[in-house]
Simulated scan of single mutants.
Amino acid sequence: MFAALFSKLGVPIKTTVSATVLEEALHGEVNIRPLPLGQPLCRKVEKQCAHFYSVTITEKEAQAGFVCRVYSPEKSKLKLLYFDQEENGGLSLLLQEDSAKRGKVTSAGMYFLGFPVYRMDQTQNLVAAAKDPDAAFFKKLDGFQPCEINELKSGTHYFAVYGDNFFKSASYTIEALCAAPFMEEKENLRNVEAQILSKRVELSKFETEYKEVLAQFTEMTSRYTQEMQAIDELLKLRNEIQASYTVTSQIKRSGSSRSKNKSTFKESDEGQESNKKPSRDRSRKKRWYNLHLKVDQRKPC
């Protein structure tokens, strides 16, 4: 239930093929339908169920290359499965490809072209992108990994389409193709995948350079903010000083100076009075002292 909700929200959820389907295939209890080359087949598969197909190719077709694709215009979730036939006639799972959104459809494919072909698993990258877009960019090609099987031998091969929807059946179209008429596309695929591999190496080097420049940019951005604040404060102070040149400011200053003068004058008067009092006391003491001396002089010896 939770996986279905996350899938609806666009969060990729890695799912597995039902154990029931795998057991039935292993015991040979599945219905297998022939799939002719070059003849697309449209069907609908129930959720958690699979439709099995057999494809027979000649030696010439095997050497030219073989492709099996499944797609859904309704954007259903699908799995394309490839099985190996056991000695008892049962089928064991060898490969699986999960469908992904490509334009207006969801699709999955297996390409057996005689040279290394790569698959692109973006499940982990999409989760990482939600947390850190920059880091996800440098990890974007980490899911570009080679497929396990590059070519098929002549004979009969077995594929299946698995309904990977959580709540409803999945509509799909499956087709098997010989790659002989697609020689130009074959070379184009080889070249573009080689370029992707080179780009993955370049990304690793670019990541180091990017982080160094990003650190410098972060430092410069911080300094930019600090310098801007300092300039704004200086300009604000300058404006305040210029605004102080006004009559109102002058009146305030003159009123303030008068009050200061009054207080200073009052303090000076109080100081003078305090200075006068000691002089009177000294004169009195002096007179008393002189008088005392005169009295002593009049006494007979």
Score class of each variant (00 low, 15 high):
A19S: 10
A19H: 03
L22F: 08
E24F: 08
H27L: 15
G28P: 03
N31R: 10
L37T: 05
G38L: 08
K47S: 09
A50T: 06
A50W: 02
A50L: 09
K60W: 10
V70G: 00
Y71E: 10
S72N: 04
F83Y: 06
D98F: 13
R102E: 13
G114Y: 03
F115E: 15
V117Y: 11
Y118S: 07
Q122V: 12
K131A: 13
K131I: 14
D132R: 01
A136E: 05
F137L: 15
K139G: 09
D142M: 02
D142W: 01
T156F: 03
F166A: 07
F166P: 13
K168F: 00
S169E: 15
L177F: 09
A179Q: 00
A180L: 14
N188F: 02
N191F: 13
K199Q: 11
R200T: 05
L203R: 00
Y210I: 04
E212T: 09
Q216I: 02
M220D: 10
R223N: 05
Y224W: 07
Q226L: 11
Q229P: 00
I231A: 04
K236Y: 09
L237C: 05
Q242R: 05
T246K: 12
T248K: 12
R253S: 09
K260E: 15
S268E: 14
S283L: 05
K286S: 09
Y289M: 11
L293G: 13
